[in-house]
Design a protein around this nucleic acid. Structure first.
Lengths: 211, 211
DNA sequence: GCAGTTACGCTACGGCTCGTAGCGTAAGAG
DNA sequence: CTCTTACGCTACGAGCCGTAGCGTAACTGC
């Protein structure tokens, strides 16, 4: 969650913000993304769908991109997890298929790249994306590595900074490959692709760390 | 090149389109991307910068996204090549650094994700991006693999469809990782990162194909 | 209860961008 | 020298943005 404000004062006096309006707006945003896509989505349209005044919308989100980040982040919260599938390769295949399924959704597909594009010129937006989406994905990588180390599939790296760099590398490789395959190459990510990718990555990790 | 029209009839009668205007518009587009970014770039502004009437602009490009694709594609033409660096790993490092340098440019950084985002709802735009940008990148992958096979670093795959799938996989991994690192993680791609990435990928390729 | 504070819905607005139309003029082709 | 197309210019309706102003609703603290 953590819609708009959660910083210092949780607001103690006056009429509280309506949680129904929050939900209605985020739902309406996702519906609008599906029907119209990022480019044609307008604040006025979202407000109308949500049965809410436009001013109510602007009280919560200053810009379209922030609203969309929050709307999409909820999907990531719901649909990203990493059950133990028994091996590093199986875990990678699982998370790849899960992430790909998220990107196949029309809401996510049209919105994710757009907000990332805007974030290249907006530091606050980039931080919002990081906190709401990216960091949660990265946690899966850290968890998967921890499990693999417990299984003895990956060595434990002593140098913490090197370990962090490796985790970042793995994260960029996994997330980047899935995003590129789905959105740039516009090809589906099926079980075969996930398998081939995971095979390659596991082999690369083993060799790279065995140096 | 291949700016706007190159389809059937190269237009034989009447006043020809001004090549100076073409160049001026594309230059102005890149300049506007640097100063304003994708989001605030407007057709009117580009026309003014180029010293050209807005109507002249709309005669060539129907939408902002198509104009920007052509403007950015020229950069890819100029700055992407694959000199033989002697080994597969060195070739990968080289192309990664080259691609990353392109993505670090403010024009490219702000524009590339934006047009890809729009292309998820616009098939014509996706084809334009593919022809102007993606296919040229992919050629480097094919060239690099060919060289590696001549050096004996990679086996030759008999099944052509499997070979094509492998090439697509490699392409998505390389391009995706660099894009994700640069635009989502917002971390620089330096020689160390390129080395670690290339080491991992080469190891993964060797093992994956050795099955 | 009652005052204080904040959220809400509604309306209206100026400002900006879009994409097009209409005109007179410029530049090549036959 | 005519035909055809490109060009610059101006003007325009349409749509969206983000805000202001108002009266009303909801909740807190005295």
């Amino acid at each position: 969650m953590s819609s708009a404000a959660s910083s210092p004062a949780p607001r103690r006096t006056g009429r509280p913000r309506s949680p129904e309006a929050d939900r209605a707006i985020l739902d309406a945003t996702r519906a609008a993304l599906v029907e119209l896509g990022w480019g044609k989505l307008t604040m006025g349209d979202v407000a109308a769908r949500a049965g809410v005044a436009k001013t109510t919308l602007y009280r919560r989100w200053a810009h379209k991109s922030e609203l969309v980040v929050d709307a999409v982040a909820a999907l990531f919260d719901e649909h990203l997890e990493l059950p133990d599938r028994g091996s590093l390769q199986a875990d990678i295949e699982g998370v790849v298929l899960q992430f790909a399924a998220l990107l196949e959704r029309p809401e996510t597909k049209t919105a994710l790249m757009a907000v990332v594009a805007e974030s290249t010129r907006d530091d606050a937006l980039r931080e919002r994306i990081r906190g709401a989406i990216v960091d949660r994905q990265k946690r899966l990588v850290l968890l998967g590595r921890e499990r693999a180390q417990e299984r003895g599939e990956l060595p434990r790296e002593e140098d913490p900074s090197a370990a962090a760099r490796t985790a970042d590398l793995i994260f960029d490789v996994i997330a980047g490959a899935v995003v590129h395959r789905t959105l740039v190459s516009a090809e589906p990510v099926g079980p075969e692709w996930a398998r081939e990718f995971a095979v390659m990555l596991v082999a690369g990790l083993g060799a790279g760390l065995r140096r």
